[in-house]
């Protein structure tokens, strides 16, 4: 593996395993983001139930779980698109230097979005406007958010497109999204998201529509560019092997509850929660001989159901599991919510 050219990366920045660096947290760094007791109710359903995690500056975090686990809902809350009182959101989201933003009005979020928190979506072709050129879509936020003039914005746009590996950047400015491949569209989305130097980048399954080769390019690009800026990144993923390669920490969600969380090299190497273990058993590497798929089923979001939401699919369930919800407690280097964890 060639050493990475990280350009202006700070010497103190640590790199995840993916980039051949150490995984240890940068000592003494303040958390950039702290989520506590985040709950979302919709009628009788509790879509998020007391979700809590924190993220250090410069670190990457993975939100993992099956479809419907609440990963995208958390991402939307983090970018201020789900706010009380319109929706039943409670808890706190503390962003370094801004205080609790869960209650911030739209006016305040207009300043935060883009500048401090930016997002890239799974389907870049749907996120880009098909009617506008790439140049217009990347220059508009540069002018609006950073207040650059037309020619300065153009110069910066070309730099950004080059930094995300788009060759022939000046001529790409006049291209329309449909003239680019899926991988190139995702590069443009990354350039737009990074254009105002956010501290936190949210990437909701940024590569699930792409080939593995392009996936590797895009994940590396996101890691390199966020590290270069000392920004933090939250990946929404459901491939645990990929998460182990690109996340410092992981949060495993089931039915809107955090079931296991901690450093990825601990949680994903030796899961203690039966659900994390089961998800790991679904991953195919190219030498996997046997699969042990989870029985199909979906969690109940009923706010009144008292016990562990995974109980009806869990091979290790005890009598008390369906009756009492297990608390999230620190156990062997991670936090875990289970009455009968793996040894």
């Amino acid at each position: 593996m060639k050493p990475l050219d990280l350009g202006t990366a700070r010497a103190s920045t640590t790199l995840p395993a993916a980039l051949g660096g150490r995984i240890e947290p940068a000592a003494g760094t303040e958390p950039l983001l702290k989520v506590e007791g985040l709950s979302l109710t919709r009628g009788e359903s509790l879509i998020l139930d007391e979700v809590a995690f924190s993220l250090r500056r410069g670190a990457t975090l993975g939100l993992l779980g099956e479809s419907g686990a609440g990963k995208s809902t958390i991402a939307l809350a983090l970018i201020g698109l789900l706010r009380k009182p319109e929706v039943g959101l409670s808890g706190t989201i503390t962003l370094d230097g801004e205080g609790d933003v869960v209650d911030a009005p739209e006016k305040a979020w207009l300043k935060l979005r883009g500048r401090r928190v930016a997002m890239i979506f799974q389907d870049a072709s749907a996120a880009l406007n098909p009617c506008f050129t790439i140049g217009r879509q990347i220059m508009t936020p540069l002018r609006r958010v950073l207040g650059l003039g037309r020619s300065a914005a153009r110069v910066r746009a070309i730099e950004l497109l080059e930094s995300v590996g788009l060759n022939d950047a000046p001529s790409r400015l006049s291209a329309y999204p449909h003239q680019l491949s899926g991988g190139m569209q995702q590069r443009v989305m990354i350039a737009i998201a990074l254009s105002s130097n956010p501290d936190l980048l949210l990437a909701d399954e940024p590569t699930s529509a792409l080939d593995v080769t392009i996936q590797a390019q895009i994940i590396r690009l996101i890691l390199e560019e966020t590290r270069r800026r000392s920004a933090s990144c939250i990946f929404v993923l459901h491939d645990l092997a990929l998460a182990s390669q690109c996340c410092d920490d992981v949060v495993v969600l089931y039915g809107g509850q955090v079931v296991e969380t901690g450093p990825s090299r601990i949680v994903l190497d030796a899961p203690m929660h039966p659900y994390t273990q089961a998800l790991k058993g679904c991953v195919l590497e190219f030498d996997t001989e046997e699969l042990e798929p989870l029985p199909s089923g979906a969690p109940s979001f009923a706010s009144k159901s008292p016990g562990c939401r995974f109980a009806d699919r869990c091979a290790r369930a005890l009598d008390k599991c369906a009756a009492t919800k297990p608390p999230l407690v620190a156990t062997r280097g991670r936090k875990l919510a289970c009455w009968n964890p793996l040894p």
């Binding site: 593996m1 060639k2 395993a17 993916a18 980039l19 051949g20 491949s181 991988g183 190139m184 080939d211 593995v212 080769t213 392009i214 996936q215 590797a216 390019q217 994940i219 590396r220 890691l223 491939d239 645990l240 092997a241 990929l242 182990s244 390669q245 690109c246 090299r265 994903l268 190497d269 991953v283 590497e285 190219f286």
Partner: peptide
């Protein structure tokens, strides 16, 4: 190159295959 790009537990993300 396809093998290198396939996700694998705790393996470093290798130098990706350039271009498309």
């Amino acid at each position: 190159a396809l093998l290198n790009a396939s996700p694998r537990f705790f393996a470093p993300i290798s130098d990706p295959l350039p271009g498309e």
